[in-house]
Design a protein around this nucleic acid. Structure first.
Lengths: 211, 211
DNA sequence: TAGATTGTTAATCGATTAACAATC
DNA sequence: TAGATTGTTAATCGATTAACAATC
C-alpha cells in the first residue's frame, strides 16, 4: 500500500472536508465546479485546492473544472469510505452509543461488529442489533471475527491496560477518544487517530477568552 | 482581551496537551521538569516547547527548568480552565449525555446550565440534575440565565436553522459537533471550535489504507 | 564558581499562495 | 479559434528546529 506516502498530513486532513462538500453538491444536483468556486464555498484558496487534489491525480479538466460526481468518487476511494472495515467498540457508555449510531448512519468505511464493556450491568444488553459483550472475551472474539479497527470509548486507564492486547489481537487502526496518548507508545505500522475532546474544548476556552 | 492575538493557532492547539501532561506529572508528585525531559515525554522537541511557552511568558528558570505546579497553573489560566462559563447543550441524544458527564467530571472551564431538545419524548426528563427543556423556550431561558457558550450536539440541519438565534441570544462560543460549517457563516467576534467526528474518522480510514 | 537550562535569535524546513504555460 | 481553468513551477510565508548567549 502506502500509495500516497509523500502526501503531507495537512493535505490529508482536508480531504474529508472536500468529500463532505462534494457529496453535498452532488445531492443538490450540481454537475461541475471550478477550483475558484469550490474555494469560495469551502473557505480556502483555489490554489490550495488544485495543489491538494493533484497530490492524488489529475481529476480536473482545463477550461471545465472538476466533475463533482467523479471527484467525490475518487476522494471517497482515497479515504476508503466504500470499505467495510470490521470494527469493534471498547466501552458501552453514552459516547459509544452515540458513535454506533453515527457510524451506521453514515457510510464512511467502518462497520461495527462488536461492543465490549466490563460493567456486568451492561453485558448482554443490546445496542442496535449488537449485543454488549464482556471485555474478558475479546481475544476469543477477535480470533473468530478478525476486526481490524477499534474505537476506544473508555477512560485513559482502561486504554493503558488494553491497547497492547488489542494490537496483539490484530487491530490495525484505533480511533481514540481517551486522552491516553496512544500514538507515543504504538508501533509505526498501526494507525491512530485521536479525537481528544478535552483538547478541543480547552482550545475553545482559550478562544473565548480572547474575544 | 485578545492578550495573545499574535500567537498562532498551531501553538494554541498544543497548550491543552501541555496542560494535560503537566497535571498528570503534578498528580504523580513531580516538582520540576526541563524542556528536554518534557519534550521526550510528550513527543515534541525541547526547542518547540520553550518557543511555545515563551509566547505567553517566561515561565522557566535557567539551570532549573520549569516548576510543574506553577506552569500548570499558568497554562490553566491561559486556557481559562478555572472559569465557570455558563453553557447550554443543544440536543439530548447519547452524544449530549456523554458530553455532560465529561464536562462536569473534568474541570475545564465550562458549566452546563441547560439542555435543550425538540423531541417531546425527552422533555422534562433529567440528565444528571438538569431537566431537558423544549428548544422553543431557549430564548426565554437565555434572557434569564445568560449562557455564553453552546454545545451543538444536533444534526447539520438543526444547526443551520438555529445558530443565528443562539448568536442573537448572546452565545459567544460554540463547540460544534455537527458538520455544518459554522465558521464560514459566523462573524469574527464569535469563537467556534469544530469537533468534526466525521472528518476524524475518515482521516483514520485513509491512514489504515496506507498501512 | 561551574553546570544546567532557559529565552531568544538565526537557519531550515515545509506549507501556502501566486503565476503562468499547457490544454481542454 | 478564443475563453476558461487546470496542473505545475516558482515565490512567499509561517512554523519548526538548531544554536548560543544570558542567567539562575
Amino acid at each position: 500500500m502506502s500509495k500516497y506516502s509523500g502526501v503531507s498530513l495537512s493535505v490529508i486532513r482536508r480531504l474529508p472536508r472536500y468529500y463532505r462538500f462534494l457529496k453535498d453538491l452532488k445531492s443538490r444536483g450540481m454537475e461541475r465546479i471550478s477550483s475558484q468556486e469550490f474555494a469560495k464555498l469551502i473557505g480556502l484558496t483555489a490554489s490550495q485546492i488544485r495543489q491538494d487534489l493533484n497530490c492524488f491525480g489529475g481529476f480536473g479538466q482545463q477550461g471545465y473544472g472538476y466533475n463533482i460526481e467523479a471527484l467525490s468518487g475518487e476522494i471517497g476511494k482515497i479515504l476508503g469510505v466504500y470499505e467495510n472495515r470490521p470494527t469493534i467498540i471498547i466501552g458501552a457508555g453514552n459516547l459509544a452509543m452515540a458513535l454506533i449510531n453515527y457510524i451506521s448512519l453514515k457510510q464512511e468505511g467502518f462497520k461495527i461488529i462488536g461492543i465490549f464493556d466490563s460493567d456486568p450491568e451492561k453485558l448482554g444488553k443490546k445496542a442496535g442489533d449488537i449485543e454488549i459483550m464482556d471485555i474478558a472475551d475479546i481475544e476469543q472474539f477477535c480470533k473468530e471475527h478478525s476486526p481490524t479497527t477499534a474505537i476506544l470509548a473508555v477512560p485513559k486507564t482502561a486504554v493503558a491496560s488494553l491497547w497492547q492486547k488489542l494490537v496483539d489481537c490484530g487491530i490495525k487502526g484505533f480511533w481514540n477518544f481517551s486522552n491516553f496518548d496512544l500514538k507515543l507508545v504504538v508501533s509505526e505500522n498501526i494507525a491512530v487517530e485521536n479525537a481528544h475532546l478535552d483538547d478541543s474544548l480547552m482550545t475553545l476556552g482559550f478562544c473565548i477568552n480572547e474575544l
